[in-house]
Design a binder for these strands. Structure first.
Lengths: 98, 98
DNA sequence: ATATTATATAAGCAAATAGTTATATATCAG
DNA sequence: CTGATATATAACTATTTGCTTATATAATAT
């Protein structure tokens, strides 16, 4: 994939309010997938699909933990993605007990 | 419009290879709209529509000059947009005589 | 093995996107 | 005014997006 198309793909991954909220939740560290359903107020499958897009763009990484999946920001980001993350306000939310 | 939705709107405006190319062409300064048709290899109306999206996101500004329209990057950009522009490689192209 | 729970996938749908062609508008030259 | 040229708008189309509901998969507890 050409440089410019990779860039477009990554930017597309972050150009949605719900996916930006996911990133905002992840600023403080790892989050269990189940927590996002209440934050975004969309169905569990919808959350799963949005997380998948961010994962495919290599913006977040996944860590399976038993029945759960924990997500965190990729430690290495393209600078133009990092700047976006830096300018997001953190979102606080109620965590599940997992 | 909420902060996060404005951010999503602006990121959506730059999350397309053709619109990134437009921005890359504009890095060196003002460009006549007609020049973009050859760079993108799409129709004139398509160019007009893409420029409109960037303009509506306030990423570029327009300067009418007779029959022509000249475009340039907005001098004031959100930091997360500026970083994207900074990481684009300039594109050189043949300029019309206008 | 069975039931429970977390997540993923599939199928379907409405809306948005990115192009096309045809036509309209606007400026300029003669 | 007439014709030429630059840009914009309209109408159309195929594809993509972002959700939904229903179902499948996977891990855990009993």
């Amino acid at each position: 994939m050409k440089n410019l198309e990779l860039m477009a793909k990554q930017l597309k991954a972050v150009s949605d309010p719900n996916r930006l909220k996911l990133l905002a939740c992840l600023k403080k560290g790892e989050v269990c997938a189940c927590d996002f359903v209440d934050v975004l107020n969309i169905s569990q499958p919808a959350v799963s699909q949005q997380l998948k897009k961010l994962k495919e763009a290599e913006i977040i990484v996944e860590r399976p933990a038993g029945t759960w999946k924990h997500y965190r920001l990729n430690e290495v980001q393209q600078p133009y993605i990092q700047t976006i993350i830096d300018h997001l306000d953190e979102i606080s939310f109620i965590r599940c007990d997992c």
